[in-house]
Design a protein around this nucleic acid. Structure first.
Lengths: 224, 224
DNA sequence: CCAGAAGTGGAAGGTCTCGTCCACTTAACT
DNA sequence: AGTTAAGTGGACGAGACCTTCCACTTCTGG
């Protein structure tokens, strides 16, 4: 079956040239549409923007999660890179603060990404790999800032996803009417992170709990 | 036609006894359903839980906003009362902190209320009245805590709805897997509110902007 | 230029929710 | 008990979205 005389040879992607072109248009359209409408944007709308039929879209990306993974791959890489870059800052505290602000800013610019960052897709290996990388570097970032005596000792790694969830709430509510509000939230949060922790904080979720929270399905966002 | 001999007389509500009974069952069912599923819960589900037909539900509450107003009237009153009670605390700072925690706890217990608190319904006069009352008392609470030198001077009234939006984000994401997480967020926020403000904060939204943000419609989450 | 594999689009069937409409039931007053 | 206005329920048509399927089109290698 896999004889050497297949008429196929195609490009590296294994797709026919026109199909590969369509695939790229689909991913581009998905990026735009998710950014505008969030990751629950209608598939029809994405197909329309890409100038292809829905059938084509489904053939290439059978599930929404597949499409999301493809659409946010680049951004997730940038997300993971940000932690690495923050570690390069000689000032531990500034590195930490810049990192938090930068990630929150990434959320602010893209409705879809806002959600993707506070969510895990069991199917999307690529995204998960970047997430893991970001996690590892972030842990180092946190340790370093604590050792420098600038980050409160009881800061937990799980606080970062919590911040992102909080930021997501503010962004969802204010995106249209007061799109800069998130900056102020982040300002409060960072100041609260500064050592010394004045008061004890309620316990953070366990890593396992937070993982399960991130796994919550794509279902109708709030409620249901 | 409005002759004195109308067969009607009915109860104070102007409804026939059986109709009034049904109305109450509808409101009760709406409270439960909104708490479980959020304010976008299907009308059919509410009717089913109330044990009435959808027709009956629509006759009494023609729009979702009408039903929401009826369902959350009591809670909104409690919400407004909380500010008044916080003012009764002789300790200005403790009053402030207890208030914020209490309101956030109210959000935590009810998916629908979480949304209602960060949203305004132009149609719902009753809710708006309580919201206004809460606002006035909260303003006093803030002033008092600032004068006591315990609340940072640059705290803005608009920060409270912002906190509620942030809390809503955390609640939405963690409700199932880590339902206590919100407490930690509130812990961070309150510590950041304590005087002296270490650093300047990004500007808060203007009251007008925040008002418009609260007005965002009930529509499909991310508009369209 | 041709044959056939690869790819395409959009119609069609399914699910879900909304909100209306009206033939039927029931409470309330005499 | 009878009359009648008030009230009821749920079937129904509309609309949004999902997902599959297949007759038709297009690319590619020979």
């Amino acid at each position: 079956m896999t004889s050497s005389s297949e008429p196929s040879g195609h490009g590296r992607s294994g797709l026919r040239a026109d199909a590969e072109r369509n695939r790229q248009r689909i991913v581009a359209a998905a990026r735009d549409t998710f950014a505008d409408l969030g990751i629950e944007a209608p598939m029809d709308e994405i197909a329309r923007r890409a100038g292809v039929g829905v059938g084509t879209l489904y053939r290439r990306y059978p599930t929404r999660a597949d499409l999301i993974a493809a659409a946010f791959e680049a951004k997730m890489t940038a997300y993971a890179d940000a932690a690495r870059e923050a570690l390069a800052d000689p000032d531990a505290w500034r590195g930490f603060c810049d990192y938090v602000q930068r990630i929150c800013a990434m959320q602010a610019g893209d409705r879809g990404f806002t959600t993707v960052l506070t969510m895990t897709f069991p199917t999307a290996r690529r995204l998960q790999a970047d997430r893991d990388r970001a996690y590892a570097d972030f842990t180092a970032l946190v340790e370093r800032a604590k050792n420098a005596g600038r980050l409160r000792a009881d800061f937990a790694t799980e606080d970062m996803p919590m911040f992102l969830m909080a930021n997501a709430g503010v962004l969802t509510a204010t995106a249209d009417a007061a799109p800069e509000t998130w900056r102020r939230l982040v300002g409060y949060l960072l100041q609260a992170c500064a050592a010394p922790g004045t008061e004890p904080l309620p316990a953070p979720p366990t890593p396992r709990q937070m993982y399960r929270a991130l796994l919550r399905s794509t279902r109708r966002q709030h409620d249901r």
